[in-house]
Design a protein around this nucleic acid. Structure first.
Length: 425
RNA sequence: GUGAGCGUAGCUCAGCUGGUGGUAGCACCGGGUUGUGGCCUCGGCGGUCGUGGGUUCAAGUCCCAUCGCUCACCCCA
């Protein structure tokens, strides 16, 4: 092998592609049920967009972005997440002017230069969903309910954790209190926490070390320091979840890796993916649209990792792809091959999935091929059949076989066969 | 960026303390059936043992380096 794919970039082979298609099909269906419209945006953007939205001091911006200078000398970046691009498009095209609240989703690849591991790649794919133009907590609940329904219809069981990160009024007050608390702790924390204490104090509380957690028993909790507005919002959001019957757990220590989140944040977690526990996550980002140069509109969104959904789906029973040929045409000899090709094209034109072999191989060999492709039926045409103006139609499931007269024009046979197969489906 | 494990056929893997690469399984191709798949059976195709050095009479096996993959830390979808 001379040239291989880049580290962390994966080929999705034909055998697994139907798992992806199923996920995307169910996702699109649900998004449409909830009134979302698809938007397709570029994978390459000006670097500035992500720096301004995600935050200069985040891990993503500091060390994970695929950033390079293009031929004109401009700094460009392969998008590391979807929200920034969607909001850029939203603002650039003035979508807010068309309707007060916009519901958008996009599906596609994201890029982050991290060390790959189970469920984590450098090119990965997200289902990304945004609601712009409302700050109503019932929308927060509705959005989480949609994510929940999607996982449910995919047959995956996960847990929902939620938190509130407050707003520009109450979060700084809490942060100050937390820093004060951490300084009073002295030494004894793990190395990571020692470091985070200064770089990202909020994240300290998320530490997995039992030892550190003991120190944090008395730590101030964000949910107890929300301003009245944020507290009301959080209460209304959880009320909404309860009324919709969505089970959730409050995790006051949950933090997000992007700076733009405000108020509601949530994660959809599984324990079946090794170290990668989040299959989806999101939150509210009031203020982000304005920060990106747009109108002062609130927003909320979430993303789900398609690879992680695929990993979880693949742990379920295998499902047939549904793309098996409805007919495999077996042609024996030159003359039959020529007639067969015309018949196959006629059937395909009538909407049937039809396969055939062009190599002139033996009958047995072609039957094997039809079986391997899991073709529903075979139509055998050889010299005998040509002479008789007929074909042998075999049902590959039952094993029964009948002589099928093929009189007149190919177009006529094709239409007749196609409508007959439809009825038998 | 840090750490650990692993690189033998298209895939999954045997190969013990160095002594000629496995009739291995799956897959693929062909026969057993004058023109009929799955099951069975027989045969065939298929390998720079990741790469480069070193030790040795002899290296898939031991040593070093290097590349790649995987998992974990970090972080995240």
């Amino acid at each position: 092998m001379t040239v291989t794919a880049l580290k962390g970039f994966k080929d999705i082979l034909p055998d697994e592609v139907h798992v992806w298609q199923r996920i995307e099909r169910i996702a699109r269906d649900i998004f449409h049920r909830f009134g979302f419209a698809e938007i397709k945006v570029p994978v390459l953007e000006k670097t500035e967009l992500f720096v301004r939205s995600i935050g200069e001091a985040t891990d993503i911006v500091e060390k994970e972005m695929y950033t390079f200078v293009d031929r004109n000398g401009a700094s460009v970046t392969m998008r590391p997440e979807g929200t920034a691009s969607v909001l850029r498009a939203f603002i650039e095209h003035g979508l807010h002017a068309k309707q007060p609240v916009n519901r958008l989703y996009t599906i596609g690849p994201m890029f982050r230069h991290e060390r790959p591991q189970k469920g984590r790649l450098r090119q990965f794919h997200q289902l990304s969903v945004e609601v712009v133009g409302t700050d109503k907590p019932s929308v927060d609940a509705e959005l989480m309910a949609m994510a929940w329904l999607l996982l449910q219809e995919l047959g995956l069981s996960v847990s929902l954790q939620i938190n509130s990160l407050g707003c520009p009024q109450c979060r700084p007050v809490f942060k100050e209190k937390l820093v004060g608390f951490l300084e009073g702790l002295g030494s004894g924390l793990c190395a990571d926490c020692e470091r985070r204490r200064h770089t990202n104090p909020l994240r300290v509380l998320d530490c997995k070390s039992e030892h550190c957690q003991q120190h944090y028993r008395q730590a101030p909790v964000i949910l107890e320091h929300l301003c009245a507005g944020c507290a009301d919002h959080f209460r209304a959001t959880t009320d909404g979840l309860v009324s919709l019957g969505i089970p959730y757990a409050v995790n006051a220590f949950m933090v997000r890796g992007l700076d733009y989140y405000t108020r509601t944040t949530f994660e959809l977690l599984t324990d079946a993916l090794g170290a990668q526990s989040a299959v989806g996550a999101g939150g509210r980002y009031d203020g982000l649209v304005q920060q990106l140069g747009g109108p002062d509109l609130p927003g909320i969104g979430f993303a789900m990792g398609v690879e992680r959904l695929v990993l979880l789906s693949s742990q379920q029973e295998a499902v047939a792809s549904g793309n098996e040929p409805e007919l495999f045409l077996v042609a024996l000899g030159e003359a039959a091959l020529a007639t067969g090709l015309r018949l196959v094209h006629g059937l395909r034109s009538c909407g049937l999935r039809v396969a055939m072999d062009h190599e002139g191989r033996s009958l047995k060999s072609q039957m094997k091929q039809a079986d391997k492709l899991r073709a529903r039926r075979t139509l055998i045409i050889g010299d005998n059949e040509l002479a008789a103006g007929a074909g042998l139609l075999k049902d590959m499931l039952v094993g029964s076989q009948e002589t099928l007269p093929l009189p007149g024009e190919v177009a006529a046979w094709s239409a007749a066969l196609a409508s007959r197969f439809r009825q038998e489906q």
